[in-house]
Design a protein around this nucleic acid. Structure first.
Length: 480
RNA sequence: GCUCCCGUAGUGUAGUCCGGCCAAUCAUUUUGGCUUCUCGAGCCAAACACUCGGGUUCAAAUCCCGACGGGAGCACCA
C-alpha cells in the first residue's frame, strides 16, 4: 500500500489558547448513563489535546453519583465509555469512581457542617425553590451546629426518606444570582447504584464532590462547557471555605449537530423498548455507532478541534464531520458498483464485450482492475431507470444506451459526456443500514468478496460504506 | 423575572487581551472552469462577513456606553 498517512498537520493547532503552568493535571468526568457520543467527544478531545500538548496528566473520573430517576447510571456504560475513549485515541493515566469515594465526601461534609457553613434543611423541593426565588431564608438555616450534626448522623444512618432532607451550603439567600442561593450539597437517595448497590443513602451533588475531588487530586485546569459555569463559583466558594488553592477554569460553548437531538437517558429508554437496535444504533450518535459507520476517530478529532475553545454556541451540520472523514477515507476506500432497487433491462443492438474492466480506485492504478461480466440482461437502479426514460445514458465503463421502457438500445461505445450509471449482470444481495435507522436493499458486484470484514469501500455514486457482514452482505452507510 | 456568557461570510473559525501592517485568515459551502468513464476525489478561480447606534482616537472588528439578537443557569440531574 502506498503511503496514505502523510503528514496532514497544517496549522489549525492554534485554535486552542495556550494554558499556563507546569505539571498540568486535568480530568474528564463522564456521567455513565450510556456511551460517549459525538457531543461528549468535545470535552474528551479537548482535555486530551491540552494534556498531550503540555505533557500533563489526565484523569478519567466516572461521575457516577446516583443521578436521578430520569438519569440513571448504567452498568454497561463504564465499559462503553472506556471503549470509546480508547477508540478516539485518548490517553489517560488514572481512573477514579465517585461511588468509591463516598466516605471522603462524608468526611468533608461533616467538616463543612462543623464549620457552620452548611445546614441540614428539611424544606420540600418545592418550598426550597420558592424560597430561593424570593430570597427567603427558611427556619432550618439558623439551626445550631450540634443540631445539624445530629440530623446529619441520622441522614447517614438512613433515617430519612428521599426528598425529606438535604444538606445545603450557606451562601446568601440575597445573592443576586438566584442560581447561587444556598445550593444543595447532599441529598437522600435510596436508589440502587449499579456499582455499590444500596450501601449509601446520602449522596453528594456534583458541585460538592467536585470541589473536594478537584482539590484532592490536584487539578490544575478544569475544562467545562458553558452550561456548568456556575460550578466554578461553587467550587471556588467551597475552596475558600477550606482555605484551598484555586485552579484555572476554561470554558467552551454549546455544540449542537443540526437536526440531531442527543439524550442518553432517552436513548436508554428507547433501547429498552426496542425502538433502537442498541448503543451502536446510528441514531444515538454514540462513538460506537460512528465507528460502525466507518467514521474515523481522526476525523472526529479534526472536527472538534476546528471549533477551538470559543464560547459561542454553535450548530453545525453533520456534513462537516463527513467532509473531514471523506478527506481521510477517500483514498483508502476502493470502489464497487452497487445497484439499489434493481430493475432489469435488456440490451438491444451490437455489443461484443464479455467483460468490463474497471479500476478499483480511479486515483491508484496500482490497485488493479475489477472485472464485471457483461450480459444482455442487466440491472440498473430504479431511480436511474425512472429518471432517464427516453434519454441516452452511459453504462459506466461499458457503452451508451438509450433507455426505452425495459430496453436499452446500444448507441455506441465512446466515452461521452453524459450521465454515467452503475449496472450489474447479477450480484450479491446487499442490505445497507442507513443513519436514520432504515435500510436500502440492492445488489453489489460479486467482486466485493475480495474485501475484508470492516473494510471501508465506496459504492460509486452512492456513498461510503463499511462492511458489517460478508456472508449475507450487510454494510452500514457512512456518508456520500 | 433574576444572574452570567456570547455576537466576524450559508456554516464554523483566526484576529479582539497589547487599537494602525485587517479594503479582515483558514476550512467547509455555493458557483464557474480544468481534469477524471462516479452526482466522489483533485486542481484553478469567483462569491459571501466584522449585529446596530453613539462615544474615545490622527486611526476601532479591536477600547467605552447603550440597544438588539442568541445561549446557559436559577433541579434534592449531570
Amino acid at each position: 500500500m502506498p503511503e496514505y498517512f502523510e503528514e496532514k498537520e497544517e496549522e489549525e493547532i492554534d485554535r486552542l489558547p495556550e494554558i499556563e503552568g507546569e505539571d498540568i493535571v486535568m480530568r474528564m468526568a463522564p456521567y455513565p448513563s450510556g456511551p460517549l457520543h459525538i457531543g461528549n467527544s468535545r470535552m474528551v478531545i479537548l482535555n486530551d489535546e491540552y494534556v498531550k500538548r503540555n505533557d500533563g496528566k489526565l484523569v478519567l473520573f466516572y461521575d457516577d453519583t446516583i443521578g436521578s430517576e430520569k438519569k440513571k447510571p448504567l452498568i454497561e456504560a463504564f465499559d462503553l465509555i472506556k471503549e470509546g475513549l480508547e477508540w478516539l485515541g485518548v490517553e489517560w493515566h488514572e481512573t477514579y469512581y465517585k461511588s468509591e469515594r463516598m466516605e471522603i465526601y462524608y468526611e468533608y461534609g461533616q467538616k463543612i457542617i462543623e464549620m457552620g457553613d452548611a445546614y441540614v434543611c428539611e424544606c420540600s423541593a418545592k418550598g426550597l425553590r420558592k424560597n430561593r426565588e424570593k430570597g427567603i431564608e427558611c427556619e432550618h438555616r439558623s439551626r445550631s451546629v450540634d443540631e445539624n450534626l445530629e440530623k446529619w448522623e441520622k441522614m447517614l444512618d438512613g433515617e430519612f426518606d428521599e426528598g425529606e432532607v438535604t444538606v445545603r451550603l450557606k451562601t446568601d439567600m440575597q445573592y443576586p444570582d438566584p442560581a447561587f442561593r444556598d445550593r444543595v450539597l447532599f441529598r437522600v437517595s435510596n436508589q440502587e447504584h449499579p456499582r455499590v448497590g444500596d450501601e449509601y443513602h446520602v449522596w453528594p451533588l456534583l458541585e460538592f464532590s467536585w470541589a473536594i475531588d478537584d482539590h484532592l487530586l490536584g487539578m490544575t485546569h478544569i475544562l467545562r462547557g458553558k452550561d456548568l459555569v456556575m460550578e466554578d463559583k461553587m467550587e471556588e466558594y467551597i475552596w475558600d471555605l477550606f482555605g484551598w488553592e484555586k485552579c484555572e477554569f476554561l470554558h467552551y460553548g454549546m455544540l449542537r449537530l443540526r437536526n440531531v437531538r442527543l439524550s442518553k437517558s432517552e436513548f436508554q429508554q428507547q433501547i429498552k423498548e426496542g425502538k433502537l437496535r442498541g448503543w451502536d444504533d446510528p441514531r444515538t450518535w454514540s462513538l460506537q455507532s460512528l465507528k460502525r459507520r466507518g467514521i474515523q476517530p481522526e476525523a472526529i478529532r479534526d472536527f472538534i478541534l476546528d471549533f477551538g475553545m470559543s464560547k459561542t454556541d454553535i450548530e453545525v451540520p453533520a456534513s462537516k464531520l463527513y467532509a473531514k472523514n471523506r478527506e481521510i477515507i477517500d483514498e483508502k476506500a476502493n470502489r464497487y458498483f452497487f445497484v439499489k432497487d434493481p430493475v432489469e433491462i435488456e440490451l438491444v443492438g451490437d455489443l461484443d464485450i464479455d467483460e468490463a474492466e474497471i479500476p478499483r480506485h480511479p486515483d491508484f492504478s496500482d490497485r488493479g482492475n475489477r472485472k464485471i461480466k457483461v450480459d444482455r440482461k442487466l440491472f440498473i437502479s430504479k431511480k436511474d431507470w425512472n429518471e432517464n426514460e427516453g434519454k441516452e445514458v452511459r453504462l459506466k465503463n461499458l457503452c451508451n444506451i438509450k433507455l426505452e421502457g425495459h430496453k436499452g438500445y446500444v448507441t455506441d461505445l465512446a466515452n461521452k459526456d453524459i450521465l454515467k450509471i452503475q449496472w450489474l449482470p447479477d450480484g450479491e444481495k446487499c442490505s445497507v443500514e442507513k443513519p436514520d435507522g432504515s435500510y436500502d436493499e440492492g445488489i453489489v458486484e460479486t467482486n466485493i468478496e475480495e474485501v475484508e470484514l470492516n473494510d471501508l469501500v465506496q459504492f460509486e455514486r452512492y456513498g461510503f460504506v463499511k462492511i458489517l457482514e460478508n456472508s449475507q452482505w450487510k454494510v452500514s452507510y457512512g456518508h456520500r
